[in-house]
Amino acid sequence: MTAPALDKTRYDVLNVVALKKMAAPQVIAAASGVAVRDVEAVLADLAARGLVVVAAGSVLPTDDAEPALRTTAAGHYAAVRDDPLVAQLVDRFETVNAQFLTTMSAWQQVDVGGRKVANDHSDSAYDDKVISRLDKLVARLGPLLDALADHDPRFGIYPRRFAAAVDGVDEGRHELVSSPTADSIHNIWFEFHEDLLRTLGRERAA
């Protein structure tokens, strides 16, 4: 059975819930571009449809959320999937993504005599090098994000979130590199990757 398609606002809200796995309405509003008061109404509607539940004060997607998003994305993003520029940029993204994951691990762990140990962040030269590599990798997403935003302006929210996180890191707020509880570079990247795969109707490889 195919899940029923959602309208664009419901898709945008449910998409963010599914990307974040667990989120408060304000956070969903910021990442989806839908106003907070509208988000609340849409969430109530999605809950009535059995697509989200509230647990421990946060909104979580149910098992039915993913099929509904998949069906809807196939309709909304048919033109994106046929865009040769997007296809070309996405091929390049796979390489950048692999480099990103390695760089993120280098932020968390350092190699000492072939053994990985936790990075205690006492070597600022090492940390600065990793941060500068991350900045470059984020910058390399630019053309793909622009191409996607030409199809759907909500993709324009990612560059703004990345810029805020990168600026914060450059100001010394290092939790914005990889903290799972902040709008960190790793969180934004991960959400974008999953969003991209859903938009294109592809499966996750790594």
Binding site: L101, T102, S105, Q108, P180, F190
Partner: peptide
């Protein structure tokens, strides 16, 4: 899955 994956990164963070 590999320790360099998203879940690996998260488990180190937590």
């Amino acid at each position: 899955g590999a320790p360099e994956s998203h879940l690996g990164i998260l488990s180190r963070e937590f």
